[in-house]
C-alpha cells in the first residue's frame, strides 16, 4: 500500500509536468492569441509522443537503441575487466601503484570529452570510438573501487584466513577477490551509467547511428520534437538498465547488510 502510494505520487509528478507543458505550449493565452511558450522551441507533449510512437511503429528506433546498447555493454565489460585486473595488480604491488600514481591521477583528471575527437580519428566513426570513450570512464570507477576493496580488507578477517591455513593463492580467491568484487558491485550503478554516457556522448560528437546520433540529427534540423523524443527514449533506456542492475546487485550482494537495506 505504501509502495502503491509512492508510485502514484511519482506518476502524479509526471502528469502535472506534462499538463503544464501542454497548457503553456498550446493554450492561446499569450499576446496576440499565441501560446505563452513558443512550441517551435519547446515542442508540445503530444508532438513528442506522436514522434516516439512513429519511431516505434515504423521500427526505425530499434537499430539506434541496439547500437547504443551494444556500445554501452562493450564499454562496461571492457572497462570493468581492465579496472578489476589493474586495480588488483596495483593493490598487491604497492611499488607499481606508487610509480603510476601521478599518471593515474593525470589521466583521471582529464575531461573525457576532449578524448572523443582523438578516438574518432583512431577508431573511426563506428562503434569502436564510442566504446573507447566509455571504457575510459568505466575503467577509473572500477579501478579505484577494486583498489580500495583489496586494500581495505579487515585485518582481523585477513589474520583469521591465515590462521585457518590459507596460502597466498587461497587468500586471493577467498578474501581479496570477494572483497574487491563487492566494492566493484557497489559502484555498479555509477559505472553502468557512465558506460551509457560514454556511448551517447561519443555518438553525439560524430557517428552514423545510435540515440546520440538521433538527437544530433533532430537538433541540426531544428526538430525540437525529435530532440525531446530522443531524450525521453534515452531516459527510459537508462531507467530500464538501472533496474536490471538493481536486480543483479540484489542477487550478488545478498550477504551485505547495506545493499539489502538500501534497495528494498
Amino acid at each position: 500500500m505504501k509502495r502503491l502510494g509512492l508510485i502514484s505520487a511519482q506518476l502524479g509528478v509526471a502528469v502535472v509536468l506534462l499538463l503544464l507543458w501542454h497548457v503553456l505550449t498550446t493554450m492561446p493565452w499569450g499576446a496576440g492569441g499565441k501560446p505563452l511558450v513558443p512550441p517551435f522551441f519547446f515542442s508540445t507533449p503530444l508532438d513528442v509522443i506522436a514522434r516516439i510512437h512513429k519511431w516505434f511503429s515504423e521500427g526505425t528506433i530499434w537499430r539506434h537503441l541496439w547500437i547504443t546498447l551494444t556500445e554501452s555493454a562493450l564499454a562496461f565489460v571492457i572497462g570493468s575487466v581492465a579496472g578489476v585486473l589493474v586495480g588488483f595488480w596495483f593493490a598487491r604491488q604497492p611499488l607499481i601503484a606508487a610509480i603510476f600514481d601521478p599518471y593515474v591521477k593525470m589521466v583521471n583528471a582529464l575531461p573525457r570529452i576532449v578524448l572523443a575527437p582523438i578516438f574518432t580519428l583512431w577508431f573511426g566513426l563506428g562503434i569502436a570510438s564510442k566504446v573507447a570513450l566509455g571504457v575510459t570512464l568505466v575503467f577509473f570507477i572500477v579501478f579505484f573501487n577494486v583498489y580500495q576493496g583489496v586494500r581495505e580488507v579487515s585485518p582481523t578477517v585477513l589474520a583469521n584466513a591465515r590462521m585457518l591455513g590459507m596460502n597466498e593463492r587461497q587468500l586471493m580467491r577467498h578474501v581479496y577477490w570477494p572483497s574487491a568484487l563487492s566494492w566493484m558491485f557497489s559502484s555498479l550503478h555509477t559505472s553502468v551509467g557512465f558506460a551509457v554516457v560514454g556511448a551517447v556522448v561519443g555518438e553525439y560528437l560524430g557517428s552514423a547511428a545510435g540515440l546520440g546520433y538521433l538527437i544530433l540529427q533532430a537538433e541540426g534540423t531544428f526538430d525540437i520534437a525529435g530532440v525531446f523524443a530522443g531524450m525521453f527514449v534515452l531516459a527510459v533506456f537508462v531507467l530500464v538498465i538501472d533496474g536490471l542492475v538493481t536486480l543483479v546487485e540484489r542477487r550478488l550482494l545478498v550477504w551485505r547488510p547495506t545493499a539489502a537495506d538500501t534497495h528494498k
Partner: peptide
C-alpha cells in the same frame, strides 16, 4: 593453533 579473535572475523561474503 586455532585462533578465535575478539573482533568479527567471519568472512561476510560466505554463508
Amino acid at each position: 593453533a586455532g585462533y578465535l579473535f575478539q573482533a568479527d572475523s567471519l568472512f561476510p561474503w560466505k554463508t
